[in-house]
Design a protein around this nucleic acid. Sequence first.
DNA 1: ATCTTTTATCGTATATTTACGATGAACGAT
DNA 2: ATCGTTCATCGTAAATATACGATAAAAGAT
Lengths: 105, 105
Amino acid sequence: MAISKKEEFTQEEIWLADVAKSLSHPARIKILKMLNEMNSCMVGSLVDKLPLAQATVSQHLKELKRVGLINGEIDGPKVCYCVNTKALAKAKSALDKLFNKIGCC
Amino acid sequence: MAISKKEEFTQEEIWLADVAKSLSHPARIKILKMLNEMNSCMVGSLVDKLPLAQATVSQHLKELKRVGLINGEIDGPKVCYCVNTKALAKAKSALDKLFNKIGCC
DNA sequence: ATCTTTTATCGTATATTTACGATGAACGAT
DNA sequence: ATCGTTCATCGTAAATATACGATAAAAGAT
């Protein structure tokens, strides 16, 4: 019958799920793409190109920053965001590891 | 001032966010790992190794199935789940594309 | 000093997610 | 036909996510 359930989740599993959560909204996917493609990475530029209010975009940026996928540098009254290449690489590697298996059926 | 906001999200962005959402819980990460590692993929085996009730595990399996990352085959009164290798490969490819860029700062 | 610009945070409403017990449906065994 | 097993679904409570307007904070410009 198995009445155990002692096992918890590993830190790696929790972290990877957290990274995935930060990618789980189209706006945040788009923001990452825009940060890669645009020269300027001011918040205003992002707001202009997203169908969302400034407060909402700021909230999405906060979520991406929370898991370390992007960094923000203050530049006068503006803030310049950029992707954290190292964090992206780490996430990519972890996801690759999860995905590079073969199904059991 | 830019008062446009015409742009919506692409289907690709929406789909990728959806895949990420399905990975955004440690239990679902663990389930994918278990489906890769175990010989048996009965729901009961998963429930035994997860700190969650059967109904909750079933709900997580439904979410993974919703985005196509796993398939379930009915086998008598049991159900055998397995990863959808093609879907995983597609997701991996899309994430790689998103991640293989260089930051702007 | 005051004003404007830029961004973050607060407050809040609504929607979604997560979790569980209870119940239902499908099937094999008796 | 009834019973036990296996899994999905229902109902529901609590937590989290999403969105926006309003407001605050920080800095440059006048």
